[in-house]
Write a protein that binds this DNA or RNA. Structure first.
Lengths: 210, 210
DNA sequence: ACATAAACTTAGGCTGAGGCCAAAATTATG
DNA sequence: CATAATTTTGGCCTCAGCCTAAGTTTATGT
């Protein structure tokens, strides 16, 4: 049994209730037409409490953060010793496609519609993609013991991040177009192979183990 | 002489005055501490007039839009027939470095500081990078007569866009660090070569003219 | 030249996000 | 059981973004 006081239990409970009510309202009425006050009322807490748990309104809808932004960095950090980053990410992505993993873009059509319809959420998603790329760049810089102003880790992270961003967007686009998860998976599989094949000549040897 | 009515003249004048006053205030006090009402007062117009010309407050500080977002697409569209996109962009970027072109990240330290200090402006900059990438993707898709769901043009555009984004960020970072334009140009030249060399194995043959 | 139409500007008000604060309620700790 | 730490609360404030209705200026057709 995990050590956890009553206080922490209640916090989780409150946070969970707020997020659940928020998601419910957002899906029903659209992100922009639901106010923080509405969420607070539905969760039966004060407006300020909502803000305490979710500093920005967008976080109410995109409560992934750590899981999402650390995805690429974790995959690379945990890969087999000596394996190129590109190969590890390729494998991980294709696995995620098979799992219909939400982290690479699989989502309910309603959820996808909610996100796409809101400029604020789209902007937040852009920010998350960037954070994810930065985290990957950090791992690559560390691993290769690159000098602080060596542009290579950032460049490689940008290439790899770009691939994942484009594939994420394709998943969302197809979801909005009404395709089934299996159709989307098949298409993503093809696109991913195209993408990773494209980068292979440039990145297959990174990081250099020489 | 260009044909232009009195009305259009006045509009330009008003827009120019608003933008100038806004920039002056932003540089002096910081973006977030200047309100639209302040700008309106300084430009001696109504608050709503400011909003009419610049729907978003961020546009008051980043009034580049067309010039910036069309940069890559234009370079590729106007390159010599048969020249790879990568080669054209490489040449254009290195030229821009020599020119200390603001469009690739050269800016006054004060201006750079103003942008970086404001989350809203940083977010807007992300959005502009994305628009630029989308414009490039459109040109590439058109040129290669790619099928609507062919991921290749988007992937290539993402790679090329990523390079430009990383280099832009490096320019800003070095500006904030107090480096001189010449120092920055020298560093950017090296980084750009690294970046374009990195992509060469993957992209030198795109688009295929076969 | 004049009247009418079109376009732009204006003042004012409204909503909602985000930030702040002091007080009350709740939980933890000695 | 008392005291300290934390969370919640309600209320207040500023400002961006949007709207409306009216006023002003410029363009157009007769």
């Amino acid at each position: 049994m995990i050590r956890m006081g009553l206080r922490e239990m209640k916090k989780r409970q409150t946070r969970q209730t707020i997020a659940a009510q928020a998601t419910r309202l957002f899906l029903r009425h659209g992100f922009d037409r639901v106010t923080i006050a509405d969420v607070a009322a539905a969760a039966q807490v004060a407006k300020m409490t909502v803000t305490n748990y979710f500093p920005r309104k967008e976080d109410l809808a995109l409560d992934l953060h750590e899981e999402f932004t650390g995805l690429l960095a974790r995959t690379v950090a945990r890969r087999a010793p000596g394996e190129p980053a590109l190969a590890a990410l390729r494998r991980a992505f294709l696995d995620a496609v098979d799992r219909h993993d939400p982290a690479i873009g699989f989502a309910d059509p309603d959820f996808a519609r909610m996100i796409s319809a809101s400029p604020a959420l789209v902007a937040r998603l852009r920010e998350l993609h960037e954070e994810r790329e930065d985290a990957l760049a950090s791992v690559l810089a560390e691993e290769t013991a690159a000098a602080p102003d060596d542009p290579l880790p950032r460049l490689v992270a940008a290439q790899l991040g770009a691939v994942h961003r484009v594939l994420f967007q394709e998943a969302v686009r197809r979801t909005l177009a009404g395709e089934s998860p299996d159709e989307i998976a098949a298409a993503l599989n093809r696109s991913a192979r195209t993408a990773f094949d494209l980068l292979t000549p440039s990145l297959a040897g990174y990081p250099h183990t020489a």
